[in-house]
């Protein structure tokens, strides 16, 4: 019973979505439409679970004075400030919640991602040593795309931006398409395995 009911729910909800696609009439249309909304509501429960877990981890870290515990109150206070301001003022523009998002969360997100520029570049320097002709090809392709994106590329040779456009439009599209088609087949196979209860590791084991 521990697994049968969740598996039955998975099968029913999966089949409703499939039937809704192939038979877009009542009752499947209504069921499918409602189930999509239910899906969003239940999935938002996962955000609450994640946040509760975050608080649990940091409270525990502070209580037991684990490594770097002094920073845990910063996370807790940051979380609570956003929650309290959001609940009091809502998400309307120019109010405190939006103010903190625009002036702190968004800049920190952009800075974090921009930091990756340095690390990706240094990782590339180590990984993309032209050890064989295929690695050289990868390096050349990356270099041409980067050069074609900035004015200095066109200043060096006016055909570099055109080469970049061709690389992105033809070989890149071909490679991405092969990956996308392969991944789509994988999604179809895995989804069917999940709906029919063959794949059940997401429920915490295959017992």
């Amino acid at each position: 019973m521990r697994l049968i009911i969740p598996l039955a729910i998975t099968f029913t909800s999966g089949m409703i979505m499939i039937l809704n696609f192939f038979i877009p009439h009542q009752p499947f249309a209504l069921l499918g439409e409602n189930l999509q909304e239910w899906y969003m509501i239940v999935a938002s429960g996962a955000i609450f679970l994640g946040s509760a877990n975050l608080l649990h981890v940091h409270f525990r870290k502070t209580r037991l004075k684990l490594k770097n515990w002094k920073y845990s109150p910063v996370t807790i206070v940051g979380f609570l400030v956003m929650i309290v301001l959001g609940l009091i003022y809502g998400v309307t523009e120019n109010l405190p919640f939006d103010y903190l998002f625009m002036n702190m969360v968004a800049p920190m997100g952009a800075t974090m991602f921009s930091l990756l520029a340095f690390f990706v570049a240094s990782a590339a320097f180590r990984a993309f040593r032209a050890s064989n002709w295929r690695a050289t090809l990868l390096l050349t392709s990356a270099f041409l795309v980067m050069l074609g994106q900035v004015p200095i590329g066109a200043m060096i040779w006016d055909k570099i931006p055109l080469a970049k456009v061709w690389l992105m439009a033809i070989p890149n599209t071909a490679g991405q398409r092969a990956v996308m088609i392969g991944a789509a087949m994988g999604v179809v196979a895995t989804s069917l395995r999940m709906i029919f209860g063959i794949e059940r590791s997401y429920l915490g084991g295959a017992d």
């Binding site: 938002s44 955000i47 609450f48 994640g50 946040s51 975050l54 920073y71 845990s72 910063v74 996370t75 807790i76 206070v77 940051g78 979380f79 609570l80 400030v81 956003m82 929650i83 959001g86 609940l87 809502g90 998400v91 919640f97 903190l100 998002f101 702190m104 969360v105 920190m108 997100g109 974090m112």
Partner: peptide, 17 residues
């Protein structure tokens, strides 16, 4: 740590509203 806490708070409020 501030980023982690504030982002989590933001997503909770976002999903509520």
């Amino acid at each position: 740590h501030l980023f982690v806490g504030m982002s989590a708070g933001y997503w909770v409020i976002y999903s509520i509203f």
